[in-house]
């Protein structure tokens, strides 16, 4: 499973203050904690704390000062990305594009040039799709466009766009159905990623909902997640779901082995 650590995000108060005050220690500490928790990528999100490319680059450098985990750049503005991607020591994951032509035409050349990967949100000009079919249609557009730029399926992370269970209860099943069909686009397939915390947005039993939905997503082919990598129960659920899907070989100490 590809784990993208979500914590370095200006949506969190401590990170927002760290960006404003240029307090590198806070960023570095979260980078280390998430790397220790086996994050595959560390997401870096400037949010509304700043719109300066140099601040985004500073955050990336803070992370790279303490860990060698690749970066997920949570930003979709080409001008920002043009500055930030070259700062990354390893090919980053760019988060994200949509299925809109102009957006893809701007971002895919950068992905191809730097051998990066990119999250493809399956939404278009009309906004977030309501049905599985529309999600699959938009995903198809992303995959086809990426091929034109010589980007391989392994560089694409399709995101079915997770909607809150509490407010849009009909959506979860559409998302699961769409995810199941994303696998069929190519062999090897694209990655399938989800921003997990959206599913439990506003709900009371957040962690339980996250865990159960994650297991169901994995059952439908999801292999990557943007999540709280420090949530042990969630990680245990992921490890177990992957065993059940025969993605890794069972051993009695599989949980302990992952945490080593």
């Amino acid at each position: 499973m590809i784990l993208v650590g979500e914590r370095i995000n200006a949506g969190f108060k401590d990170i927002r203050e760290a960006i404003v005050n240029k307090d590198a220690d806070v960023i570095k500490e979260w980078a280390k904690k998430q790397a220790d928790a086996k994050a595959t990528y560390i997401d870096v999100n400037l949010g509304t704390a700043s719109n300066k490319p140099e601040d985004l680059c500073w955050m990336i450098e803070c992370v790279q000062d303490v860990v060698d985990t690749p970066i997920s750049i949570d930003n979709n503005k080409p001008l920002m990305l043009k500055e930030a991607i070259p700062v990354c020591k390893k090919p980053p994951l760019i988060n994200s594009t949509t299925a809109q032509e102009d957006k893809m035409n701007e971002l895919f050349p950068l992905v191809a040039e730097y051998g990066a990967s990119i999250v493809g949100l399956v939404m278009d000009e009309a906004g977030s799709p309501k049905t599985a079919d529309k999600r699959v249609e938009n995903a198809g557009k992303i995959v086809a466009k990426a091929m034109e730029f010589g980007i391989s399926p392994e560089q694409i992370f399709l995101d079915p766009i997770i909607m809150p269970l509490k407010y849009m209860q009909d959506q979860a099943v559409e998302i699961l159905n769409a995810t199941n069909q994303f696998k069929l686009f190519s062999d090897p397939p694209c990655h399938i990623i989800c921003g997990l915390s959206n599913i439990s947005n506003g709900a009371k039993h957040k962690r339980l909902i996250n865990r159960v939905f994650m297991a169901m997503m994995i059952a439908n082919g999801c292999d990557s997640v943007i999540c709280d990598v420090m949530d042990d129960e969630l990680i245990n659920t992921i490890l177990t779901a992957e065993l059940i899907m025969n993605k890794s070989i069972y051993a009695d100490s599989y949980i302990e082995a992952f945490k080593k």
Partner: peptide, 11 residues
Amino acid sequence: NIGKQVNILLQ
């Protein structure tokens, strides 16, 4: 499965 487990134990 035991093969993997033995390696985990050695580690």
